[in-house]
Every structure is written in structure tokens, then in C-alpha cells.
């Protein structure tokens, strides 16, 4: 039983990472109906930026964190301007391929700049070398996992409020449903696009920095983005709480599959769940029901 609870907790921590990355997909999709396949690579770049500021330049962790997030936000809106905007209005497939290309490019260039070794950031969460876990009874939870869970939940709440309560958030939802109508209503569609890419890149940066203690930073860290797709789909792709819930479910399933099922199931469990969800409930758990119009 204790094993089970321990696996459950580990699964939730893992799931929060997936949820955090899925959040990035969901934000862009929710506001612009674009799916960004380079989200994992943005996460990787965020980690590298943080490494540059914190370890390489020796800044304070929090200042470095902030600088990295700002840099990534700027980078995100630059990417939107240069790559995404020229192909807006074309079939979605074009944008998907463009972001995949972008992912390739980012991974290779990051490899050229920062090398292919694993990099490490020292975090203030690890209180000492020997004892950086929290014990509840005989449960063991690592500090960096707690930081991930807390940050993910906080970010979800903030973004949820942003989308449902602020003018800009509602403008973003309108843009996603009908760009042209939103434009006629006086919504600055171009600014919406820049802003949402900036926010999404910043969220990716958060994920990258929080993930750094447990996976280290290297050029292939972005592949975790592919694991976040099942989370986003399970949650309904357009829903912020859905991304979190979907991420946690996927994380728990993956962890339990690794523990109880034969070898090999751990890696594909997420994808099997994804296919089942697409098969039986393509709208996901929190998906919006859309009426078809001819």
C-alpha cells in the first residue's frame, strides 16, 4: 500500500511537469488555434537561459530566473512575428510543420552554443546536500518535486483567472473562435498573438527551470514535450484546468505502469491512453462542445 501511495505521489509530481508543458500548448491553442510543436524546445531554451544567467554569470537564483523568463517571453514573441505570422490563415498543417522545423533548428543551435553535455543549476530549494527531501510518515518527496507541484498549481490558477476575468483574456478567447470577427470588434489581433506566444514561452521557461534539478539541462530535454501531448488531449486541448488534470492523470498512469506492468509499458502508457481518449472521447475531459456549422 505504501508503495502504491509513494508511486502515486511521484506520479503526481511527474504529472505536474507534463501539465506545465501542456499548459504551454493549451495557451497558444486557446488563443490562436495554433499548436506549437516546439514547446518542448522552448522549455529547453528556457533551461539554457537560466543556466547562463545563474550558473555561468553567477547571478542570484531569483534574478536569473526572472531574467530568463523575460528573455524567453521576448523570444516567444519574436518567433511569433518571424515564423508564425506570415503563415497565419493557411491550413493548420503548415503551422504545425513550421513549428516542428523551428524545434529542429532550436535544438541544433542550442547544441552548438551550449554544447551537448548535461548542465546543472543550483537551486535554493535543496537545503543541504544530504537532506533535500520532505518526509511525511514514511513517504519521501524530493524538494524539487514539491517546487514543481506548487509552481504548477499557482501558474494554473493565475492563468485561469487571466483567461476568465481580464479583458485581454476574453479577447484572446474571442480571437481563437473567429479571428476576423474579433478584429472587427476592435480586438488587436496581432498584439493578442504576440502576447500569447510571449506568455507561452514564459510558461515553458518556468517548466524548464523547475525541471532542471531532476532531469538536468541538455539538448534532448525538449522531447518531454511529446509526452505532454497526451496530457493536453486528455484535458481537452483548450482548457487550462484540463491541462493540469490531464497531466496529473498521465503522470500517475505512467508511474504506475512502470511499477506494476512489465518493462516497456512505462514509455508507451501515455500514448496508449492518448489513442484511447481520441478513440472514445476526442473532446477530452474538459473539452468544449462545439457545434458544427456548414
Amino acid at each position: 500500500m505504501l508503495d502504491f501511495i509513494q508511486q502515486l505521489v511521484n506520479g503526481i509530481a511527474l504529472g505536474c511537469v507534463y501539465g506545465l508543458i501542456a499548459l504551454g500548448f493549451v495557451l497558444i491553442y486557446k488563443a490562436t488555434e495554433v499548436v506549437n510543436f516546439a514547446q518542448g524546445e522552448l522549455l529547453m531554451l528556457g533551461g539554457f537561459f537560466a543556466f547562463t544567467f545563474i550558473t555561468f554569470m553567477g547571478l542570484n537564483y531569483w534574478i536569473g530566473f526572472l531574467l530568463a523568463v523575460i528573455c524567453m517571453a521576448l523570444l516567444g514573441s519574436t518567433i511569433e512575428r518571424v515564423v508564425v505570422r506570415p503563415i497565419l490563415g493557411y491550413p493548420q498543417f503548415s503551422i504545425v510543420m513550421a513549428t516542428i522545423g523551428l524545434g529542429f533548428f532550436a535544438r541544433s543551435v542550442a547544441g552548438m552554443i551550449w554544447g551537448t553535455d548535461d548542465l546543472k543549476i543550483d537551486t535554493p530549494f535543496s537545503r543541504s546536500v544530504t537532506e533535500n527531501v520532505v518526509r511525511i510518515g514514511s513517504l519521501v518527496i524530493a524538494d524539487d518535486k514539491i517546487s514543481i507541484i506548487v509552481a504548477t498549481v499557482l501558474l494554473c490558477i493565475v492563468l485561469y483567472l487571466f483567461f476568465s476575468r481580464t479583458r485581454m483574456g476574453i479577447a484572446m478567447q474571442a480571437t481563437s473562435q473567429n479571428m476576423l470577427a474579433a478584429y472587427y470588434m476592435g480586438i488587436p489581433v496581432k498584439r493578442v498573438f504576440s502576447l500569447i506566444w510571449a506568455i507561452s514561452a514564459a510558461v515553458a521557461c518556468f517548466a524548464g527551470i523547475l525541471l532542471a534539478p531532476s532531469t538536468l539541462i541538455h539538448t534532448n530535454v525538449g522531447f518531454i514535450g511529446l509526452k505532454a501531448f497526451p496530457a493536453a488531449v486528455l484535458g481537452g486541448f483548450g482548457s487550462i484546468p484540463g491541462a493540469l488534470v490531464g497531466g496529473i492523470i498521465i503522470g500517475v498512469i505512467e508511474q504506475l505502469a512502470g511499477f506494476y506492468l512489465p518493462q516497456g509499458f512505462k514509455d508507451v502508457a501515455a500514448y496508449i491512453v492518448l489513442l484511447l481518449v481520441l478513440w472514445f472521447k476526442p473532446d477530452g475531459l474538459f473539452g468544449m462542445k462545439m457545434r458544427k456549422k456548414v
Partner: peptide
Amino acid sequence: APGMKGALYGLIIIFFIIFEP
């Protein structure tokens, strides 16, 4: 440079999608 192929692939994809669909 290591990863030159990946960078080239990425650039080619983006180039074709934007300029030569």
C-alpha cells in the same frame, strides 16, 4: 558543427512553408 543537419532541416522546413508552399 555537430547538429548542422538538424539546423539545416529546420531552416529548410520553415523556408519552404513560408516562401515556397
